Simulated scan of single mutants.
Amino acid sequence: MTDDGAFRNTTFVVIDFEATTPAGFPAQPVEVAVLALRYDGQWRETGRGTSLIRPPAFAPVTPAFTAQTGLTAEQLQAAPTPAEALAALDRRFAADTSYLLVAQHAATEANLIYHQREHCPRLARIDLLDTIPLAKRCVPGLFNYRLDTLLAHFGIAQPADRHRAPADVAVTAQLFRRLIALADDNGEADSLAGLVKIAGRTAQANAPVQERLFELSPPEAE
């Protein structure tokens, strides 16, 4: 797989969000981190970035969230808005480069990006790879496939600031590299297309819009 031209021409961008989960609304991002990787016979880091993001008033920071992440409402009030932070991230993606996003439980990141797509239209069009189905294929039989379980299985040190986006991105990148090595050695995938078949997730902005079946026409004016 790692000799495949398409694989070597792809920049894999590991991404992680921390978010609040207000009742009645989609999750709202309060921190994002990315770490970009390319493979040319060995893995090379080609960029990284992180930003706090100010949550809207309807998505306040709770004591439980602060206990888990260490982020406080006061810190986040001084952060860039979602429009500012995500537009800045979006500008880092070049139009002439092939990208795939990489995330642990990619559905979470996919949903957050989709709901913020007006601020990051280029990012919103990038498809994803999910480390969970890849791990299930490469290391079957684990009792679960949570990030902490996978880190322990591979002997990857638990970061002191686990549940902060930069730390989670760093260890997810290590996990991704271990899984790619296993998939390559075991013949689980022989190309980028094979990897996508195992672990790919289409970005919601790229999903076809389907008309509702049997939709009724509006009633004619009497």
Rank of each mutant, 00 (worst) to 15 (best):
R146W: 08
A59P: 00
C120L: 15
A221N: 11
D4C: 08
C138S: 15
R122H: 07
A88E: 13
L76W: 06
Q75I: 00
P63V: 05
F93L: 11
G187V: 00
S217C: 11
F17H: 06
L134C: 04
Q28E: 11
I156M: 01
G194H: 09
K197D: 15
D96C: 02
T131N: 13
G5H: 06
P26C: 04
R91G: 13
L142Y: 11
L195V: 07
A193I: 09
P133W: 06
A181C: 08
V30H: 03
L142E: 14
T2N: 09
G49Y: 00
I180S: 07
A106N: 08
D184Q: 14
A205L: 14
M1C: 04
A205W: 07
L192G: 01
L175K: 08
P166W: 12
P56H: 05
T66H: 05
P29I: 02
A203N: 07
L123D: 01
Q68E: 12
G5L: 11
I198P: 05
L147V: 10
L37M: 10
T172D: 02
A181D: 13
P60E: 09
V13A: 03
R92G: 15
I198Q: 05
G41I: 11
V34G: 06
G187D: 13
L52K: 04
A103M: 09
P219E: 12
R178Y: 00
I156A: 06
P121F: 02
I15N: 00
N186V: 04
S217N: 12
E109R: 06
L100F: 15
S191N: 10
A107E: 13
P22H: 00
D161F: 10
T172K: 05
I132C: 02
R91N: 09
T81H: 02
R146I: 11
V171Q: 00
Q174K: 00
R162I: 02
R125K: 14
